[in-house]
Amino acid sequence: MVIETQNLVKRYGKVTAVDGVSLRVSQGEIYAFLGLNGAGKTTTIRMLLGMVKPTSGEVRVLGTRVRIGGPKPWASVGYLVETATAYPELTVRENLEVVQRLRPGTEPQAVDRIIEQLGLSAYADRRAGTLSLGNLQRVGLAKALIHQPEVLILDEPFNGLDPAGIVEIRELLRELVRNQGVTVFMSSHILGEVSRLADRIGIIHQGRLLQELDIAELERRRKRRLLVQTRDGLAAQTVLGAAGFSIERLDHQTIAVCDQSAIDRPDDIATLLVRAQHPPMMLKVEDEDLEQYFLRLIRQDVSN
Rank of each mutant, 00 (worst) to 15 (best):
T5Y: 01
N7R: 11
R11K: 13
G20H: 02
S22Y: 01
S22G: 07
S26H: 12
S26R: 15
G28E: 03
Y31F: 15
F33W: 15
N37L: 05
A39K: 11
T44D: 01
I45N: 08
T55Q: 06
L62R: 07
G70V: 05
P71A: 06
P71N: 06
K72A: 15
S76I: 03
G78Y: 03
Y79L: 03
E82S: 05
E82T: 07
T83Q: 12
E89H: 14
L96P: 10
V99Y: 03
V99P: 00
Q100V: 14
E107M: 13
E107T: 15
A110V: 14
I114L: 11
D125M: 11
R127C: 07
S132C: 02
R138G: 00
H147R: 15
E150K: 14
D155V: 00
D155Y: 12
F158I: 00
F158K: 00
D162V: 08
P163S: 07
I166C: 04
V167P: 02
R170D: 11
L172G: 09
E175P: 01
S187W: 11
I190A: 10
I190N: 05
E193T: 03
V194C: 10
I201K: 08
I204G: 02
I215N: 10
I215V: 15
A216G: 07
V228Q: 12
A236I: 08
V239S: 06
F245R: 09
S246K: 12
H252F: 13
D259V: 07
I263N: 04
P266T: 08
V274T: 03
P279K: 14
V285N: 02
E286M: 14
F294L: 02
